[in-house]
């Protein structure tokens, strides 16, 4: 019990410097980025132009003429209280913007992650069951092909075929659940292929291990070996890496949201870039970073509770 607690405490504490580091990175890239935030705040519509004095005054009010560390500390202090500043171009607070955007992205990412896990494991296992039959061979080639397809290409083809030619599914929309189907598909097909191939390879490796040979020698069917012995042995590590795919999916959602015009986090990032809206972009990086780190933490702890013998990469 003591060792268990020890591990958990250590793992939880290990997150703190990482989060701290992420905050430093987030702040620094905005700090290093070219352009004057004061000028940008005053100058968002390009019709009227601020004078030099106005810019100077704005610099003082925004506190951007202070040194790096003092700016960082005042920023992080506010951030800890949930105040991430205000967007330059639409003046909303970054937090309220996040609150608006996060649900949209989650409604994409969570089903996509589920699909990735379930679809990947099921298809991968299917591949390992009888690898020699034709449909299975086609499937494993499909994995390779999907793995090599850029996401935007996939999304465009899906829109073109399903939306415009067949008119099966809506291609834009935040109004009802159907609108999320195509984007979720476009988002998860690649990751399903990755997980599927991984499961397939791991299973193939596992089956070559001596204990499976012995089981086979005892007359246990191949199918049974896969389900009863090989799969349980590889399933935990697979779940462990699902957390990684959450990051992948969050990243992919930038492209998918852009193509399907969904007002989620990804399109917020693009909007922030388009307007050089640093606070918004900072909010984005900070949020995705923290979520990703915390999700890995939860997954690790869960797996540890399931099987304390599991060995993690050092943290």
């Amino acid at each position: 019990m003591n060792m268990k607690m020890n591990f958990i405490v250590k793992r939880v504490l290990s997150v703190i410097p990482v989060l701290f580091g992420i905050s430093i990175i987030t702040f620094s890239i905005a700090f290093l980025a070219p352009g004057d935030p004061a000028e940008m705040t005053l100058d968002q519509n390009g019709i009227y132009f601020p004078t030099q004095e106005q810019i100077e005054q704005m610099r003082v009010t925004m506190g951007v003429n202070a040194s790096w560390h003092s700016q960082y500390f005042s920023w992080i202090k506010k951030a800890l209280y949930g105040d991430l500043g205000h967007s330059y171009h639409n003046k909303n607070s970054v937090l309220s913007e996040l609150r608006m955007r996060v649900p949209v992205t989650l409604q994409l990412a969570v089903p996509a992650l589920l699909l990735t896990g379930l679809g990947g494991i099921i298809l991968g296992t299917l591949c390992a069951l009888d690898p020699k039959t034709l449909p299975i061979r086609i499937l494993s080639h499909l994995f390779d092909i999907f793995l090599a397809t850029p996401r935007f290409l996939l999304a465009l083809l899906l829109i073109f075929v399903m939306g415009e030619i067949l008119r099966l599914l809506p291609t834009s929309g935040v109004t009802d659940y159907k609108g999320y189907l195509l984007p979720t598909m476009a988002l998860s097909i690649t990751t399903i292929a990755v997980v599927g191939r991984l499961v397939k390879n791991k299973l193939a490796e596992e089956i070559r291990k001596p204990y499976c040979f012995i089981a086979l020698a005892h007359g246990i069917q191949h199918r049974q070996i896969v389900f009863l012995y090989a799969l349980p042995n590889i399933i935990l590590p697979i779940i462990a890496i699902l957390g990684n795919f959450f990051g992948e999916i969050l990243g992919g959602s930038i492209i998918i949201e852009n193509i399907f015009a969904l007002p989620g986090l990804g399109s917020m990032a693009i909007e922030a870039i388009r307007f050089r809206d640093y606070p918004l972009l900072q909010g984005y990086v900070l949020f995705t970073g923290c979520t990703y780190v915390l999700i890995s933490l939860v997954l690790d702890l869960l797996l540890y509770l399931l099987n304390p013998k599991i060995r993690f990469e050092e943290y």
Binding site: I159, G163, E164, R167, L169, P170, T171, S172, I259, A261
Partner: peptide, 12 residues
């Protein structure tokens, strides 16, 4: 925001 999507939305 995306003209392509507006087009698709009209079409569908």
């Amino acid at each position: 925001p995306n003209a392509e999507v507006r087009y698709s939305a009209l079409k569908s």
